[in-house]
Amino acid sequence: MINGAHVIVYSRDAEADRAFLRDVLEWPHVDAGGGWLIFRLPPAEVAVHPADGPSHELYLMCSDLAATMEQLAARGVEFTAPVSEARWGRTTALRLPGGGEVGLYEPRHPTAHGG
């Protein structure tokens, strides 16, 4: 029935953010036409948290937050939040070239995607 998910990241500079995903994160992609890149995501999962109203967040997952931050920093990535330690994992956030932020997350719980 459902065979995938399509995540949309809105950006003030979509071309710069596409280049970031292509060149810095090195994600495989297809060109849907005219340079409109669509990226293959790593395995993913969805969690539903209680809230007062609709809201969505995007977190990229990694198995070693410190090592991933070191690799990304060497590629010029700016981190916008200190590492936060929680019972369920470690998080930070990184700046996209278009001005947005994306979370980066090392889970300390079983993952649904098996990674």
Rank of each mutant, 00 (worst) to 15 (best):
L21R: 00
L21T: 03
L21F: 15
R22W: 03
D23Q: 05
D23M: 02
D23Y: 01
D23H: 00
D23A: 01
V24I: 13
V24Y: 02
V24E: 00
V24N: 04
L25C: 03
L25A: 03
L25K: 03
E26R: 14
E26T: 06
E26C: 06
E26D: 08
W27V: 00
P28A: 09
P28L: 02
H29V: 00
H29Y: 11
H29D: 03
H29P: 00
V30A: 03
V30E: 10
V30H: 03
V30S: 01
D31M: 06
D31R: 04
A32T: 05
A32W: 04
G33K: 06
G33C: 07
G33T: 08
G33M: 06
G34A: 01
G34W: 00
G34V: 04
G34P: 05
G35L: 08
W36I: 12
W36L: 09
W36F: 13
W36P: 00
W36N: 12
L37P: 04
I38W: 01
I38L: 09
I38C: 05
F39G: 04
F39P: 07
F39S: 04
F39D: 03
R40C: 00
R40H: 08
R40M: 02
L41H: 04
L41Y: 01
L41I: 01
L41D: 01
P42W: 03
P42M: 02
P43Y: 07
P43W: 05
A44F: 13
A44S: 11
A44R: 04
A44Q: 07
A44C: 09
E45I: 05
E45Y: 06
E45C: 08
V46H: 12
V46N: 10
A47D: 11
A47L: 15
A47F: 15
A47N: 13
V48D: 15
V48P: 02
V48G: 13
H49T: 07
H49G: 00
P50K: 11
P50T: 13
P50S: 10
A51M: 12
A51N: 15
A51Y: 11
A51K: 06
D52T: 11
D52I: 08
D52G: 15
G53E: 15
P54S: 12
P54T: 10
P54L: 14
P54Y: 15
S55D: 14
S55H: 08
S55Y: 12
H56D: 09
H56M: 13
H56G: 06
H56L: 12
H56S: 10
H56F: 10
E57D: 13
E57F: 11
E57P: 00
L58K: 07
L58A: 05
L58N: 05
L58F: 12
L58Y: 08
Y59R: 08
Y59N: 13
Y59H: 15
Y59V: 02
Y59T: 07
L60H: 09
M61H: 12
M61W: 11
M61D: 12
C62Y: 05
C62L: 08
C62N: 14
C62H: 09
C62K: 04
S63N: 12
S63E: 14
S63L: 09
S63Q: 12
S63Y: 02
D64E: 13
D64R: 11
D64T: 05
D64K: 08
L65N: 09
L65M: 08
L65Q: 06
L65C: 11
A66E: 14
A66D: 15
A67H: 07
A67T: 05
T68V: 07
T68D: 04
T68R: 13
T68Y: 01
